[in-house]
Amino acid sequence: MTAATAGRVLRQLRHDPRTIAMMLAVPGLLLGLLYLLWKDLPTPPGQVGVFDRVGLTMLGIFPFVVMFLVTSIAMLRERTSGTLERLLTTPLSRPALLLGYGIAFGLAAALQAVVTVAVATTLYDLTVAGSLALVVLIAVVDAILGVALGLLASAFARSEFQAVQFMPVIVLPQFFLCGLLAPREQMAGWLQAVSDVLPLTYAVDALQEVGRSSEVTGRIWLDLAAVAGTAVLALALAAGTLRRRTS
């Protein structure tokens, strides 16, 4: 039933070619803009170039943001169209439903990551010390985090207007504090503490680590585990918000 649900979600996506095109092309185009922005900036010897650092991080942030938005809208539509209530009267279990969403959008994110990584490394000469497959894996785990938080956020939105506004609320603080805009070591202590509990921090750390070292370090796996753990927690909370009986 999880597979049937994932298939159904992907089929819905397939009927919307423009969304697919944007999902696949937009991250690459935005990266191109960053590339042009920093192309002629001199890099001090012995340091990682700005584009190599920020561009790589973006490979983890795009899928997170896109999948958060797509999922929260998709789930809100399930709620308002009555299909959710109907699904809850069928043998489909709540975890199976949420897992189906996770798998479907996780697959979409994998495709998006492969395209974006390919574009970044060939067209924009993004250099990554570690393995590109690992970059794709981190992007997919980030996407699943986006899906999980999107499913959870949709429970608190009663309209599409509210749902899209959850994006800045959930995403931007994590982006500001993830260490990209200011090094984490230089943040005020309490901000660093907040940053410590935000999952995107670990996603970005994992990507930086892959960018720096050609070896697969334990730190990468710990980072990934933190992101995946948060995603599982959010999915469990989201399952709790799916009430079978309503007034």
Binding site: R11, Q12, G82, E85, R86, P91, L92
Partner: peptide, 23 residues
């Protein structure tokens, strides 16, 4: 339900096949 609760962005057959799979 009183208001049709099916997926508008799927075909009739895709909708029914999905619910068939659930049952």
């Amino acid at each position: 339900t009183q208001a049709p609760s099916v997926y508008g962005d799927l075909t009739v057959r895709e909708n029914v096949r999905y619910f068939a799979a659930l049952y």
